[in-house]
């Protein structure tokens, strides 16, 4: 369990990187943290590791107050945290096995025990045949697997990942995310993943927080956040391709489907509209499966203002999130940029 209480961080020089952050992450949760570049994501994770002191507030991990810990206590606390880095940061002078053994060496685990653990961990990340390879002999995905095994070596309760897949292609990203998901299921660890890829959040996060200029702008279980139309995060998570073929200013109706109401599928939506004699000209749409549920967003173009109003009415009456928007507004509303390889 991770608990942040009114955490602020001001860097020497006056940059306020975190501003009264409150966050509660229950044990066993995979929590995504997203936000623009410079929002303070890395700062948040560095404060969690104790690599950076917080200016104000408290951070506790599994009941241990990290902000009060000093010296030996801090070192012990760090051992209860595993960290995975974007650039992996393996030592080039050590083989995969030696890199994984490193935290155990530091914790003075006896050699025989060390060897047994390393073999176990290599097995866990599927790299048993690569034990004696140096990092330079491994692919990006394999390196990250070694990085994850190393982070888990000292059996931490918490795994912190700062952009763990940003340097990987999409297939490898999926494999790494799958691995992280499996590890959580098997070991019951709590995971924080910082990412700028919405696909990462959609794929494995149970909950997500949006960090904006050092503050948590929105935080909650993934489906709740998506269902919340007012949150820009919802539009980022289920994003629509641009409708650039349309005249700027053209009216569009945006509908969000979350399988929660009576209308759970696009099929139901289309039949509802046709029952009411309304044309459904779809300009853009996307469907994602999130935590086993289908979630989607559509842009429907009404013929004129009166059908627009009627469509809106019908959809709202059916309990759906629908709103009127214009084609030009779309381009400016993109807050976070989704980058998918």
């Amino acid at each position: 369990m991770i608990e942040l209480n009114e955490v602020s961080k001001v860097y020497p020089g006056g940059v306020t990187a975190l501003n009264s952050v409150n966050l509660h992450i229950p044990a066993g949760e995979i929590h995504g943290i997203v936000g623009r570049s410079g929002a303070g994501k890395s700062t948040l994770i560095r404060c969690l590791t104790g690599l950076e002191d917080v200016t104000e507030g408290q951070i506790s991990i599994d009941g241990v107050d990290l902000t009060a810990a000093r010296g030996a206590e801090l070192i012990a606390a760090r051992r209860s945290i595993g960290m995975v880095f974007q650039h992996v940061n393996l030592l080039d002078s050590r083989t995969a096995a030696k890199n994984i053994a490193h935290p155990l060496e530091i914790a003075r685990v006896p050699k025989a025990e060390r060897r047994r653990r390393v073999a176990e961990l290599l097995e866990l990340v599927g790299l048993s045949d690569r034990a004696d390879n140096y990092p330079s002999q491994l692919s990006g995905g394999q390196k990250q697997r070694v990085g994850i095994a190393r982070a888990l070596a000292a059996e931490p309760g918490v795994l912190l990942c700062d952009e763990p897949t940003s340097a990987l292609d999409s297939t490898t990203t999926r494999q790494i995310l799958e691995l992280i998901g499996q590890l959580r299921d098997r070991l019951g660890i709590t995971v924080i993943i910082i990412t700028h890829e919405m696909s990462v959040v959609r794929e494995i996060c149970d909950a997500v927080s949006l960090l904006d200029e050092g503050s948590i702008a929105r935080s909650g279980p993934l489906l709740d956040v998506i269902s919340d139309r007012s949150s820009p995060l919802s539009k980022e998570l289920i994003s629509l391709p641009p409708t650039s073929a349309l005249q700027p200013g053209a009216q569009l109706i945006e509908v969000l489907l979350t399988e929660s109401g009576t209308i759970g599928h696009f099929g139901d939506l289309f039949s509802l509209l046709s029952r009411n004699g309304l044309p459904t000209r779809v300009e853009a749409g996307s469907i994602e499966t999130i935590q086993g549920r289908q979630v989607g967003r559509l842009h429907i173009r009404p013929e004129d203002s009166s059908t627009a109003q009627k469509t809106l009415q019908v959809l709202t009456d059916a309990g759906l999130h629908a709103e009127l928007t214009t084609a030009a507004a779309l381009e400016t509303e993109a807050g976070l940029k989704e980058e998918e390889a």
């Binding site: 590791t49 690599l51 760090r78 880095f85 650039h87 940061n89 030592l91 490193h102 530091i106 000292a154």
Partner: peptide, 21 residues
């Protein structure tokens, strides 16, 4: 790279260990 230093510090290593290893 500083990342390597931080990664090993995260394991709870002393400065002496980081310098040497």
């Amino acid at each position: 790279s500083w990342g390597k230093v931080e990664a090993v510090r995260m394991m709870g290593a002393s400065d002496l260990h980081v310098t040497w290893n």
